[in-house]
Every structure is written in structure tokens, then in C-alpha cells.
Amino acid sequence: MKIEALLLSVRLALCVSAILIAIGVPLAYGLAYSRWRGKFLLEAIVALPLVLPPTVLGFYMLLAMGPRGALGKLWYAAFGHGLAFTFAGLVIASVLYSLPFAVQPLVASFETVDSKLLDASAVLGAGSLRTFRRIILPLSVPGIITALVLSFAHTLGEFGVVLMVGGNLSGVTRTVSIDIYDRAQSLDYAGANRTALLLLVISFLVLSAVYGANRRAGRRAWAPWPLR
């Protein structure tokens, strides 16, 4: 078993979950509380990766990251090299791919905060930022943990997008799922089996932690299945 690939996957999953929380929290706030009429369009866009095959996303990412794509041009201008086949490229693609796994539990948990508490906060003189920081966030901790764990687990197990834009570079883009695939392809079934089993166990532990925590919290914050 290649520990390098596993470590890379963990590093990728950590980066992606951190970024997803950073951009997912404001996005989820907007989705939960905005009264904008076109909100449903944004909801649909966020949920797209749930239904799109990773090949579609990977394909567009590959084009976008190339020298003719907007993202690629920007990256060339800033760093002098392409975005495909880099760790950063993998992070960007994975953030997009795991977006609903972070945003949906956050939206669900923001929405379950009693609106009267928000009203109470407002009449006590708090602006929306203070209300968010002092009331919504602390009451959404289970949802935030769910979002973190699911983003982490989903990125850890991601394959299609990484395959499409990664280029299979050892230590840079060869994640554990790619490693498993390579082993199966080169008929090293025993090696594939060991790594796959490890990934299976990790994923199972992560998911049972989420479901267990939800159960203890006495309500279902959000779980990927059934979908909301």
C-alpha cells in the first residue's frame, strides 16, 4: 500500500474541507436567508455536482484550466504554469465537486434555527453579522461538523474528477482512489484490495461518526441519503 497516495488524499481532503467551510458558510447563509426570487437557480447550481457525473465536471475543468480556458489563462498570468496536473488544480476541482456536500447541511442547519431567536437578537440591537456569529453559528455546530466531515469523506473518495484533471503524478495528484485504480489496472489485485479496504474502513468510520452525532443531537441535521 502506498502511504504517499493516502497522505496526499488526506491532505487534499483537509484543504478542500477547509476551503468549503470558508466559502460554504456565506453561501449557505445566502441560500438560507435571502429572499431573492432567483434563489432556486443558485440552489440548483450548488446541487448540480450531486447529479452530474464527475466526468462532465472533470471535462469542463480540464478545458477551463487549459491555456484557452479562463481559469487557465488567469493561472498562467499569475503563476506562469498551468493549473491542470497540479495540487492546486485538484483542490479547485474538488471544491466544486464537493460543494453540495458542504453547502446543503449548512443550509439545513441554518434553516432549523428558530427565526424568533433571530428576531430576538435583532430587537436586542444586534446587526445581522452579530446575530450570525453569536446565534446562528453556535446553534449550527452539528451542521458545520456534518458539512466538514462529508466534504472530507467525499473528497477522500473522489475519483472521476481527479482522474480527469490530475494526470496521475505521484505525490502531487495520485490520490488513493487513483492508486487503487492503477493497481487494479496493472492486475495487482492484492495491492488494490488492501488500499480499497482501508479506504472503505475510513469512510465507514467517518459516516458512522456523522450519523451517530446526528442521532445524539436528537435530530437529523443532514445526511447525503436520502437527499433533501
Partner: peptide
């Protein structure tokens, strides 16, 4: 500098799309 396509067709796709 080498990047690996899952098969030779994907390697071709990497160059054709300009990423390699």
C-alpha cells in the same frame, strides 16, 4: 514533466486540450 493519462486516449486529450 510527465503526466499520465489513464489510457493513451486520455493522454491525447491532455495535449489536445492544451493542458500538456
Amino acid at each position: 514533466k510527465l503526466v499520465y493519462g489513464e489510457n493513451i486516449a486520455q493522454a491525447a486529450q491532455f495535449v489536445a486540450s492544451g493542458n500538456a
